[in-house]
Protein backbone atom coordinates (compact mmCIF):
# COMPACT_ATOMS: atom_id res chain seq x y z
CA UNK A 1 0.00 0.00 0.00
CA UNK A 2 2.73 2.41 1.00
CA UNK A 3 4.61 1.46 -2.10
CA UNK A 4 1.54 2.12 -4.16
CA UNK A 5 1.14 5.60 -2.68
CA UNK A 6 4.82 6.25 -3.27
CA UNK A 7 4.38 5.38 -6.88
CA UNK A 8 1.36 7.60 -7.34
CA UNK A 9 2.93 10.63 -5.73
CA UNK A 10 6.32 10.20 -7.43
CA UNK A 11 8.06 10.25 -4.06
CA UNK A 12 11.28 8.82 -5.43
CA UNK A 13 11.47 11.32 -8.22
CA UNK A 14 10.57 14.23 -5.95
CA UNK A 15 13.40 13.24 -3.63
CA UNK A 16 15.78 13.50 -6.53
CA UNK A 17 14.34 16.82 -7.55
CA UNK A 18 14.86 18.12 -4.01
CA UNK A 19 18.59 17.87 -4.65
CA UNK A 20 18.40 19.81 -7.86
CA UNK A 21 16.21 22.50 -6.32
CA UNK A 22 18.67 22.91 -3.51
CA UNK A 23 21.26 23.98 -6.06
CA UNK A 24 19.05 26.48 -7.80
CA UNK A 25 20.15 29.41 -5.67
CA UNK A 26 23.71 28.46 -4.85
CA UNK A 27 26.77 30.00 -6.36
CA UNK A 28 27.38 29.19 -9.99
CA UNK A 29 30.33 26.89 -10.43
CA UNK A 30 30.95 27.46 -14.12
CA UNK A 31 33.70 29.78 -15.26
CA UNK A 32 32.75 32.19 -17.99
CA UNK A 33 35.74 31.38 -20.11
CA UNK A 34 36.41 34.00 -22.75
CA UNK A 35 35.28 36.72 -20.35
CA UNK A 36 37.39 35.61 -17.43
CA UNK A 37 40.49 33.62 -18.08
CA UNK A 38 41.05 30.62 -15.88
CA UNK A 39 43.96 30.84 -13.50
CA UNK A 40 46.11 27.86 -14.20
CA UNK A 41 48.49 26.07 -11.91
CA UNK A 42 52.08 27.14 -11.85
CA UNK A 43 53.25 23.84 -13.31
CA UNK A 44 50.85 23.92 -16.21
CA UNK A 45 52.46 22.75 -19.42
CA UNK A 46 51.15 25.04 -22.11
CA UNK A 47 52.66 27.24 -24.78
CA UNK A 48 56.44 26.99 -25.05
CA UNK A 49 58.80 29.85 -24.38
CA UNK A 50 62.51 30.21 -24.90
CA UNK A 51 63.79 32.18 -21.97
CA UNK A 52 66.26 35.00 -22.09
CA UNK A 53 68.55 35.92 -19.28
CA UNK A 54 66.64 38.65 -17.45
CA UNK A 55 69.78 40.69 -16.87
CA UNK A 56 71.66 40.55 -20.12
CA UNK A 57 68.79 39.76 -22.47
CA UNK A 58 70.85 37.03 -24.06
CA UNK A 59 69.28 33.68 -24.67
CA UNK A 60 69.76 31.08 -21.96
CA UNK A 61 69.95 28.28 -24.49
CA UNK A 62 73.40 26.78 -24.87
CA UNK A 63 72.40 24.77 -27.95
CA UNK A 64 73.13 21.47 -26.27
CA UNK A 65 70.41 19.75 -28.30
CA UNK A 66 69.15 17.73 -25.32
CA UNK A 67 65.57 18.90 -25.73
CA UNK A 68 65.55 17.85 -29.37
CA UNK A 69 66.93 14.45 -28.41
CA UNK A 70 64.46 13.71 -25.64
CA UNK A 71 61.37 14.90 -27.50
CA UNK A 72 59.23 11.87 -28.38
CA UNK A 73 57.84 13.62 -31.42
CA UNK A 74 61.19 14.97 -32.64
CA UNK A 75 59.62 18.34 -33.21
CA UNK A 76 62.32 20.63 -31.85
CA UNK A 77 65.06 21.67 -34.22
CA UNK A 78 68.08 23.34 -32.68
CA UNK A 79 70.52 25.02 -35.02
CA UNK A 80 73.94 25.97 -33.72
CA UNK A 81 77.28 27.20 -34.84
CA UNK A 82 80.66 27.17 -33.16
CA UNK A 83 81.91 30.58 -32.31
CA UNK A 84 85.39 30.68 -33.90
CA UNK A 85 86.88 32.69 -31.02
CA UNK A 86 85.43 31.23 -27.84
CA UNK A 87 84.92 27.72 -29.29
CA UNK A 88 81.45 27.75 -27.75
CA UNK A 89 78.28 26.65 -29.44
CA UNK A 90 75.96 29.52 -30.29
CA UNK A 91 72.31 29.16 -31.04
CA UNK A 92 71.42 30.17 -34.59
CA UNK A 93 67.86 29.06 -34.91
CA UNK A 94 65.28 27.14 -32.94
CA UNK A 95 61.92 25.90 -34.13
CA UNK A 96 59.17 24.26 -32.17
CA UNK A 97 56.19 22.65 -33.88
CA UNK A 98 53.29 23.24 -31.49
CA UNK A 99 50.89 21.33 -33.68
CA UNK A 100 52.62 18.03 -32.91
CA UNK A 101 53.62 18.67 -29.33
CA UNK A 102 52.34 16.25 -26.69
CA UNK A 103 52.93 18.79 -23.91
CA UNK A 104 54.58 16.08 -21.94
CA UNK A 105 57.19 18.41 -20.52
CA UNK A 106 60.20 16.19 -21.15
CA UNK A 107 62.01 18.98 -22.98
CA UNK A 108 61.80 21.40 -20.08
CA UNK A 109 62.89 18.67 -17.68
CA UNK A 110 66.13 17.91 -19.49
CA UNK A 111 67.07 21.47 -20.28
CA UNK A 112 70.15 22.23 -18.16
CA UNK A 113 69.65 25.99 -18.20
CA UNK A 114 65.85 26.19 -18.03
CA UNK A 115 65.85 27.85 -21.41
CA UNK A 116 62.88 26.05 -22.89
CA UNK A 117 59.86 26.28 -20.66
CA UNK A 118 56.21 25.40 -21.03
CA UNK A 119 54.17 28.31 -19.76
CA UNK A 120 50.66 28.79 -18.48
CA UNK A 121 49.48 30.18 -21.78
CA UNK A 122 47.02 27.77 -23.31
CA UNK A 123 45.37 29.48 -26.25
CA UNK A 124 47.27 27.83 -29.06
CA UNK A 125 44.69 27.68 -31.81
CA UNK A 126 45.74 29.15 -35.09
CA UNK A 127 44.55 29.52 -38.66
CA UNK A 128 47.12 27.50 -40.50
CA UNK A 129 49.43 24.59 -39.79
CA UNK A 130 52.40 26.51 -41.02
CA UNK A 131 51.96 29.20 -38.39
CA UNK A 132 51.90 26.58 -35.66
CA UNK A 133 55.59 26.02 -36.19
CA UNK A 134 57.08 28.61 -33.89
CA UNK A 135 60.40 30.13 -34.71
CA UNK A 136 62.91 31.50 -32.26
CA UNK A 137 61.54 35.00 -32.27
CA UNK A 138 58.04 33.91 -31.46
CA UNK A 139 59.27 31.54 -28.80
CA UNK A 140 61.15 34.34 -27.12
CA UNK A 141 58.51 37.03 -27.25
CA UNK A 142 55.58 34.75 -26.71
CA UNK A 143 52.43 34.43 -28.60
CA UNK A 144 51.01 37.63 -29.96
CA UNK A 145 47.36 37.05 -30.12
CA UNK A 146 45.11 38.41 -32.77
CA UNK A 147 43.17 41.16 -31.10
CA UNK A 148 39.47 40.69 -31.34
CA UNK A 149 37.09 43.56 -31.83
CA UNK A 150 35.18 45.13 -29.00
CA UNK A 151 32.07 43.08 -29.54
CA UNK A 152 33.81 39.73 -29.46
CA UNK A 153 33.42 39.31 -25.74
CA UNK A 154 29.77 40.22 -25.61
Amino acid sequence: MINFLRRIFFIDILKGLAVTFRYTYTKVYTEQYPKEKAKLAERYKGAPRLNNDPETGETLCIACDLCALICPEDLIVVGSQRDPETRKKVLTHYTFDTSRCLFCGLCQEVCPTNAIELTQDFELADYSRRSMVWDRERLETGWDRIEFGEDYHR
Binding site: F103, G105, L106
Partner: peptide, 12 residues
Protein backbone atom coordinates in the same frame (compact mmCIF):
# COMPACT_ATOMS: atom_id res chain seq x y z
CA UNK B 1 46.14 16.91 -11.42
CA UNK B 2 46.90 20.27 -12.92
CA UNK B 3 48.63 21.41 -9.75
CA UNK B 4 50.75 18.29 -9.43
CA UNK B 5 51.34 17.09 -12.98
CA UNK B 6 50.87 20.29 -14.94
CA UNK B 7 48.16 18.89 -17.16
CA UNK B 8 44.58 17.89 -16.71
CA UNK B 9 43.86 14.98 -19.00
CA UNK B 10 46.98 13.62 -20.66
CA UNK B 11 48.99 14.10 -17.54
CA UNK B 12 52.28 12.29 -18.14
Amino acid sequence: FEALFGARLTTH
